[in-house]
Amino acid sequence: MLKIMKYSFFDLIRSRWSFVYFGFYFLLGMTLLFLNNDVSKAIITMMNIIVVLTPLIGTIFGVMYYYNSKEFTELLMAQPLKRSTIFLGQYFGLALSLAGSLVLGLGIPFAIYGVVGSAALLSFALLLAVGALLTFIFVALAYNIGLANDNKIKGFGIAILMWLFLAVVYDGIFLISLFVFDDYPIDKFSLIASTLNPIDLSRILIILELDISVLLGYTGAVFQQFFGTSLGMIASFGLLFTWVALPIGLIVRQAKRKDF
């Protein structure tokens, strides 16, 4: 698996798109840090972008890479390799190269700016960790969509819809249902519903670090327990890792049964 991963990774980091993606984050980091000097504000803006953009890019690159490397995959399948080895190798190669673009693209401006050792280091590290995890999650989801759909156009469409759903529509439905069921005890529901969507979960992880003060403004016992203690952080991270593990498991399962 490591061999496949290595070659996929090298293939991808040399692609033009990796450079564009890296360059985007690099410029973003530079602009935000050197134009407004307020690190915590820069981190909030970055969070808004990362939480939406890394899933989108992960999804698009995921399906694109899956379909583009279809023939190469067939060549690999004729080699003495397990199927899971091939797909996990490609998956990790892709996810690592995207996560690398993110971490380096934002990390370099921050290092130049001198965030190491500053108070913002923890929030920044958290931001990068969450961005990387989101990349791993959405590339895995996209790979699953690719594996389930041989039709490229259809797969692409489903992937984009999935992103749209998780990034926007889900929250809309969520908000409306909170509004409608206002009269019932809904704090448990609202916490659970937000952990079922990795984008929401990542957002909560970051606001636990950045906006904890506002989250503590509510009396609900569940909220208090979740936000008031380190439980929130630990549980959110645990769930995010589950969100990585589940679709990877599904890739292995789908790969075993699929015909090429």
Partner: peptide
């Protein structure tokens, strides 16, 4: 899967990682 080490296969369409 190990047995494939003793087979040489030429796939129909040649398309490799472009980079």
């Amino acid at each position: 899967w190990q047995y494939r080490g003793n087979i040489d296969y030429l796939p129909q369409i040649a398309n490799f990682p472009s980079n």
